[in-house]
Measured scan of single mutants.
Amino acid sequence: MATGGRRGAAAAPLLVAVAALLLGAAGHLYPGEVCPGMDIRNNLTRLHELENCSVIEGHLQILLMFKTRPEDFRDLSFPKLIMITDYLLLFRVYGLESLKDLFPNLTVIRGSRLFFNYALVIFEMVHLKELGLYNLMNITRGSVRIEKNNELCYLATIDWSRILDSVEDNYIVLNKDDNEECGDICPGTAKGKTNCPATVINGQFVERCWTHSHCQKVCPTICKSHGCTAEGLCCHSECLGNCSQPDDPTKCVACRNFYLDGRCVETCPPPYYHFQDWRCVNFSFCQDLHHKCKNSRRQGCHQYVIHNNKCIPECPSGYTMNSSNLLCTPCLGPCPKVCHLLEGEKTIDSVTSAQELRGCTVINGSLIINIRGGNNLAAELEANLGLIEEISGYLKIRRSYALVSLSFFRKLRLIRGETLEIGNYSFYALDNQNLRQLWDWSKHNLTITQGKLFFHYNPKLCLSEIHKMEEVSGTKGRQERNDIALKTNGDQASCENELLKFSYIRTSFDKI
Rank of each mutant, 00 (worst) to 15 (best):
C209T: 04
Y319Q: 15
F275I: 02
R69T: 05
C243T: 00
G318E: 08
H28V: 08
C215Q: 08
F115W: 03
V200C: 14
D247P: 02
S77G: 08
P334F: 09
E57F: 02
D169M: 09
R113L: 09
T320G: 06
K310A: 10
K129E: 14
R74K: 13
E57K: 03
K224A: 10
C219H: 09
D288F: 05
M137C: 09
Y94G: 10
N322W: 07
E124R: 06
P330W: 07
L174G: 11
P330I: 14
D101G: 05
L99E: 00
N150L: 10
P270F: 07
F285A: 10
L76K: 15
N322R: 12
D261F: 05
Y272W: 10
R41M: 02
D248Q: 12
N105A: 05
N322Y: 06
Q303K: 02
I62H: 01
Y118S: 09
D248M: 04
G95W: 03
N242E: 09
I163L: 13
N149L: 01
Y319P: 02
L155P: 05
D159P: 12
G37Q: 13
S324D: 15
L152R: 01
I82N: 04
K224N: 07
F285H: 09
E49Y: 09
H302I: 10
I158T: 12
N149R: 01
D247A: 10
H290V: 11
Q276G: 05
C182R: 12
N179P: 07
S296I: 06
F78P: 00
P271R: 15
T199A: 09
R141S: 06
M38A: 07
T157K: 05
L76C: 04
S161R: 09
N150M: 07
N242H: 12
E181T: 08
D248A: 06
K67Y: 05
E33T: 07
N242G: 07
D178E: 11
R74P: 01
Q204Y: 03
F123I: 15
N43E: 10
L155N: 09
H226R: 14
C239F: 00
D169E: 14
F283N: 11
F66T: 04
I84C: 01
P271L: 06
G203L: 08
C182T: 10
G227A: 06
V55W: 02
L120P: 00
N195Y: 06
D277T: 05
H307M: 14
K294M: 06
V305K: 12
C182M: 15
H291E: 08
S77D: 04
Y259C: 14
E97M: 04
I109Y: 00
I185S: 04
T250R: 08
Q287N: 08
E124Q: 05
I84F: 00
H302A: 12
E168G: 10
P316A: 07
F275D: 01
I146T: 01
G232I: 03
T189P: 10
C328W: 02
L90E: 00
H59K: 00
N242R: 12
K129P: 01
L155E: 08
P79F: 03
E168W: 11
I40F: 07
L90A: 05
R110D: 00
S213K: 13
N202K: 04
G142L: 02
H48D: 05
C182G: 05
S166M: 15
V305I: 06
L260V: 11
N138I: 14
